[in-house]
């Protein structure tokens, strides 16, 4: 199997994100336990040691593989490797933004309205505006079912908004 090694080398830059996150978090964690009794530090210190060892092993292996040109580190194509290609990548970012907005607005707009808007917007985002009829049907029915199950039946303490207030006055 003697192919051009450049073609075979796998870009492992994306693979470094999780170890990097883990490392940053661990360092942060350790700074928060400098003043607690040792008994409360013990577990974290043991695990952070093990984690560091695993990351060191990962680095050594990567260096070894890069030298043999089986792996490579490059910025180019890394983003696509994580997010996918257009249009999927922009849909993913959009979906994430919508999810964040959902959590952001639920406190003021209430459960039912926020769910309705989120589901509608997300379906349109993932398909197209031409699909608005289906999006409307599904978003309305999911927020209605959600209202009945969670707020009416189980009486969960979801944030309420204009729709809930109105329903309360009607029912």
């Amino acid at each position: 199997m003697q192919q051009d090694p450049q073609h075979e080398a796998r870009n492992i830059l994306p693979d470094c994100i999780i170890p990097a996150l883990a490392l940053v978090f661990t360092v942060y964690y350790l700074t928060t336990i400098t003043e607690v009794p040792w008994i409360s530090q013990a577990s974290a210190i043991v695990v952070s040691g093990l984690l560091s060892m695993a990351i060191v092993a990962f680095i050594i292996r990567s260096v070894w593989r890069i030298r043999r040109r089986r792996e490579t580190l490059r910025l180019q194509g890394s983003l696509q490797a994580v997010l996918g290609y257009v249009p999927t990548s922009s849909r993913r970012i959009g979906l994430l933004a919508l999810a964040v907005a959902y959590v952001w607005f639920i406190d003021s707009l209430g459960f039912t309205l926020t769910t309705l808007i989120f589901v509608f917007a997300a379906i349109v985002l993932l398909s197209s505006l031409a699909n608005w009829k289906n999006a409307l049907i599904i978003s309305v029915s999911s927020s209605v079912i959600g209202y009945i199950v969670f707020l009416y039946f189980f009486k969960t303490r979801f944030p309420t908004g204009p729709i809930e207030d109105w329903l309360k006055s009607v029912l």
């Binding site: 999780i18 978090f25 008994i39 974290a44 984690l51």
Partner: peptide
């Protein structure tokens, strides 16, 4: 990494908040 995340919060003995 998961274990470290699991250690977020107050410990059972001294209730010291961590991470």
């Amino acid at each position: 990494f998961g274990l470290m995340i699991g250690y977020i919060g107050a410990d059972v003995v001294y209730e010291a908040p961590r991470g």
